[in-house]
Design a protein around this nucleic acid. Structure first.
Lengths: 203, 203, 203, 203
DNA sequence: CATGAATGAGCTTTCATTCAT
DNA sequence: CATGAATGAAAGCTCATTCAT
């Protein structure tokens, strides 16, 4: 007779997902146990299975959620920026997140996608979305002469997003990296790359 | 009388490491069991412990070996190329490795390094080495006017290596990517980035 | 004000018991979960405990109910048949139930009774009832010369009921058995067994 | 290099199977836990899996072994008895086994076979074997006039074996049954059933 | 050197049962 | 009455590691 379900249920699901997210950052997908997640979410061992059918499902859900969030943020960003601005804003946001929190999950997802087809599909789906957004911006930039018209927007989008992910490794490779400086350098890199050949890009 | 040890021993160690490498590509560090490795290396379960004290040690050794190999290859490359050539050659080599084989391990290492200090240290040590090599080339390029002298060689090296790693995700993100085209695009990206401002880079 | 209870309650109890019965046939006593039963009975997980204190109680109740039904049916049968007729009618009924539905539960009960004293007692109680019924018929048959008077009615009843249960395994042992033929054979078997020695039984 | 395996291994396998057998008698297939078996076999929790891939496999192996033993014993029996003698000897053996030990497993197997196709197949395979043996004896009996030639040997074999299984329930149904008397009664039953119509069967 | 039997902690998952609503 | 969230013990099974041979 009581019908508080749908809301509470979804809320709890989110709680668990967040708890799982924190665990995954600390120990990785495979290093995290279901027990870890239950402790973190303050629920009992078996109760997790009222919300998710398996650990695998939680991993998928986390990946999906993380990528979804990224897409949404990027979608908002693209509404008020041009291509270059959107990319830079994205990097800026990445850098602002102190610590590995969000970043590590990224590599976990990439590593997993390299051998788990289900994960690969999730990743690809979201990547297509982001490429479309960025590709559109690039085309606009080309239309108004800000961007080299010779570049293939779709390809550039894919490559730039890859490069962005790569950039996230900078502080793992060398923790003493000056993030401000390297951010500026990446900005130069992208600016010079996209600029129409005739233009004389600055440093 | 038993005096063939040191050589044979080292040989076997390498065998095991290679077997482990193949397993890790297929199932990841955590998804691979010691049993998997022993089967692949065609040795018995316990015998592996004559060569490595723990699974963790194998993971470290693999990471070390992989990065060592990369460094050596890059070291050789740098002897006969300028900065741009070395980077392009590196990308070329990456692309030539069909399949995820070498690449996946890379993200595994990065994800692991993000939360495991021991792995982080290994990664950082080798990254320093590669940065030094690439940094030296960049400086030479600057000296002879091929590369923008305003760029900080060390920082550029670190960023470029990161970008390179990112580029490896291209085909995971979108398996239908035309690798040749995207390789060419990356070449353009790097060329334009490094070129002295006055120069008119090609497409 | 709430006064429809006793009737409704008993009704629901029976519903649940029937649902449980269907589950037990499919998965056995131990293979069936309380959840299975609740789903089948279309009630919620915890609500079942308003009707039964435990799963064990449901198992007992089912066994009791099944045996009770069998007794009642046999009781009705005995009113209008002689011994041989009653037995044959019983076998006929068994055969008419296509599928394992009722039969499987029988072996489940026997196996359980072999190790669970509570179940054993239930089984024995009902067996005594059926033996009394069948024993009475046999005695009548002896009185009117249809049945060998040398046979001990109680013992014969118990053995015949056992044989009947055994006969139920025929189609499990060999699913291609011709039930009609084997039914006829059993009829011959019982007829010859019970017939007074002088009589010349037919085939 | 050591090669004590094949023998020791098979021996241990048998040990475990015997331990499992004892557990199954006490608690049934589903009521027995892997832990129970390991304790009974005095091995550690996980070690069982060096010998059997799953609990299911143990259940199958037990069923197979039990039925195999029964077949072998019956095979030996048939070499020195005629049909009636073989059956009686079989019943005798059954009765001699005090307690439910062997019997319970029988109903467990039958109940399981009623819903588990794998178990059903095992049961059917062995039943075919026993039917062939018994069928052969029956035919011989018919040839020398001891057995009613009108009876279909295969069908009779299957029905008799079923009846035999049913007879095993006698002491579960009524623990106070006089086994000697009921054994004698069954002997009468089978004798009269098989005897050629003209013959005057004894009591 | 080499084997594989053996261990035992711990993993994911299930399930009978309770209880707040 | 009725729900389903919640519990926690225990299930089947895996796995890194040790050790007698």
């Amino acid at each position: 007779m009581r019908k508080l379900d749908p809301v509470k249920h979804e809320e709890k699901r989110r709680d668990i997902l967040e708890a799982a997210g924190r665990c995954f950052v600390r120990k990785g997908f495979r290093g995290t146990t279901v027990s870890d997640i239950c402790s973190e979410a303050k629920i009992s061992a078996g109760h997790l299975y009222h919300y998710f059918p398996s650990k695998e499902a939680i991993i998928s859900a986390i990946a999906e959620a993380r990528l979804e969030q990224a897409n949404e943020r990027f979608s908002r960003t693209t509404e008020e920026h041009n291509a270059l601005g959107a990319i830079l804003s994205e990097i800026d946001w990445t850098n602002s997140m102190s610590g590995a929190s969000g970043l590590v999950a990224r590599f976990e997802i990439l590593a997993e996608a390299g051998r788990n087809p289900a994960m690969a599909e999730i990743l690809q789906k979201h990547n297509r979305g982001m490429c479309r957004l960025l590709g559109g911006l690039l085309r606009k930039g080309q239309a108004c002469g800000q961007i080299d018209p010779e570049l293939d927007p779709e390809l550039v989008a894919n490559v730039l997003l890859s490069v962005l992910d790569g950039f996230k490794t900078v502080s793992i490779r060398d923790p003493e990296t000056d993030l401000k400086k390297s951010f500026h350098l990446l900005k130069v890199l992208i600016t010079r790359f996209l600029a129409p050949p005739s233009a004389t890009p600055d440093t």
